[in-house]
Design a protein around this nucleic acid. Structure first.
Length: 497
RNA sequence: GCUCCCGUAGUGUAGUCCGGUCAAUCAUUCCAGCCUUUCGAGCUGGAUACCCGGGUUCAAAUCCCGGCGGGAGCACCA
């Protein structure tokens, strides 16, 4: 029976079936599973430097959910690897989070909590859920790959305790003894079989110095802290999928209630330098001018360029939390940002690669151009050209060939070779397809725009731009830019088109 | 090699659990047109997608099977 006929018949028999339940269209992020009352979530940055665009996703998603359901977002510094801590992070990360508008309800630092992890580790030993292994690393790994136990795995508690104490008192050097958490040696996934819980490292820790030499690894520390912080939901990248499985063993051994885990996919961000180690090296070697170099994908760099945190937030909310890998789109982020800044960005003429031309036969000229076309109440830029009738025009526009050009808000000119002749002020010429170009008066000042590829565009800009220090402006027909210096010369940073 | 996850337009996303109103949503992008003054904004119109092949069914983006493709992990980093 064809579909039409079916419908007709159904209409007479049971019309209510034809009305589909109005499904709620999800706006923004999907709901979290298993929410009872308020949520408790966390950020877990490694304090090794400032946050970049990639980090902002995790922070914003957590913040969005905490704001939706109420509750708390805890910032937990994960600094259990003394060799990978850059103390700068303890300061810059909270600043970056504040700029993003992420509300941190509580901050804890794992390097304050070593005693807690030791305590748990000892309990695991007592329970027979962990062991101290003194096998060479390779031996242990080979056995594990063959689903075999190392000789230490099943030894009695007193022997384990002896070696455990030895880890602290210097009987062993790094890698000579480690605490292993038991899982299931026969697990089909080799990544899940027994994992290292704590190890020895004599590298001084930036915060605790040489007070401790036994450091927990993330799977132990994270499981313990997530539990003690009574988290309800944990958002993490899907690269942590196997870590979640490992941590679940610890939860099960103690009978702790597990949080809901949500894993999101990886993001590949084109054209931006994000890798922290490479960035740090580049800064040290002078390739980059600092953490806020506009070539970088750090939040500091984006802020410097005039990218608003709200645009970043909207972007990540639209992307959501699916487990698929995605490609980041600068164009979309810029579009969101443009929407945010356009209204407040006053207009100015910046002429890149300027050429001076004299307009022959011109009367006394003066332009009156709005600071913002949609906001005449903000006033006008009065650009005096005067008797001499000379202006700056971009080389590219000048070379667009002979013919008529409209100097925006000023007059029309007729180009012939290098000379220009006044051609009235009739806007009707636009109907004929005359190109409108921007220009600058002779009292324009030199200006530089720092581009995102590290190059600098040199030109001249109306002096009025000095009033916009610190703000994002729009250089007509060029781009949006943030004015970051006006004396002794004007310097701006490119925002986007 | 082993384990796990995932495939809707250029990009991201809705729909997939509970098959039908899905010739598939929204955003961004791109193209064209409009606009007496920007390559910005606005308005109008257009473009592009259910990975492939079987099966089940009256009906498949949705269920089943098999391919193919992508990703993650198998670290004394997080």
């Amino acid at each position: 029976m064809p579909a039409d006929e079916q419908r007709k018949q159904l209409e007479s028999i049971a019309p209510e079936l034809l009305v589909r339940e109005a499904k709620l269209r999800e706006k923004g992020l999907p709901d979290l599973e298993g929410v009872v009352g308020e949520v408790r979530m966390r950020l877990a940055p490694n304090p090794s430097g400032p946050l970049h665009l990639g980090h902002s996703r995790m922070a914003i998603l957590n913040d969005e959910y905490v704001k939706r359901y109420g509750g708390i977002c805890i910032n937990r510094f994960e600094d259990t690897d003394p060799a990978r801590v850059d103390p700068l992070g303890y300061k810059t990360i909270p600043e970056d989070l504040a700029w993003l508008g992420v509300k941190v309800g509580k901050t804890i630092i794992q390097s304050d909590r070593f005693e807690i992890y030791y305590d748990i580790a000892k309990k695991l030993l007592e329970m027979g859920r962990a062991y101290v292994c003194t096998c060479p690393v390779e031996t242990w790994r080979e056995l594990k790959n063959k689903k075999l136990a190392c000789p230490h795995r099943e030894e009695p508690f007193d022997k384990q305790l002896e070696r455990w104490d030895g880890m602290f008192d210097g009987s062993y050097r790094p890698e000579e003894a480690s605490l292993m958490v038991k899982t299931d040696l026969s697990h089909p996934n080799p990544a899940i079989r027994d994992f290292v819980g704590l190890r020895i490292d004599d590298t001084p820790h930036p915060r605790t110095g040489t007070k401790y030499r036994v450091y927990p690894l993330m799977n132990l520390a994270v499981a313990v802290d997530d539990h003690l912080l009574e988290l309800t939901h944990v958002l993490r990248g899907k690269d942590h999928l196997n870590n979640t499985f490992r941590q679940e063993y610890i939860y099960n051994y103690f009978g702790w209630k597990k949080p809901f885990y949500i894993h999101y996919g990886r993001v590949s961000i084109e054209e931006a330098q994000l890798k922290k180690s490479t960035t740090a090296k580049g800064i040290k070697e002078g390739t980059y001018t600092g953490w806020d170099d506009p070539r970088l994908g750090t939040l500091q760099a984006l802020r410097r360029r005039g990218i608003r945190p709200e645009a970043i937030r909207r972007y990540w909310v639209e992307v959501g939390i699916k487990e698929v890998d995605i490609e980041f789109s600068w164009k979309t982020l810029y579009s969101f940002n443009r929407e945010l800044i356009d209204d407040s960005a006053n207009r100015y003429f910046f002429v890149s690669d300027p050429v001076k031309i004299k307009i022959e036969g011109a009367p006394d000229l003066e332009a009156k151009a709005p600071l913002h076309p949609e906001h005449p109440e903000r006033g006008y830029r009065e650009l005096k050209v005067g008797h001499d009738a000379s202006v700056y025009v971009g080389r590219e526009d000048l070379e667009s060939g002979p013919g008529m050009l409209r100097l925006k808000d000023l007059c029309n000119i007729e180009l012939e070779g290098q000379s220009a002749r006044y051609a009235g002020n009739d806007l009707g010429v636009l109907k004929d397809g005359v190109q409108i170009v921007h220009w600058a008066p002779m009292d324009a000042v030199p200006a530089e725009v720092l581009m995102t590829d590290g190059t600098v565009k040199k030109g001249v800009v109306e002096t009025g731009v000095k009033a916009a220090l610190g703000k994002v402006v729009q250089f007509e027909r060029f781009a949006y830019a943030r004015v970051e210096q006006v004396e002794p010369s004007v310097r701006c940073v490119f925002t986007h088109k």
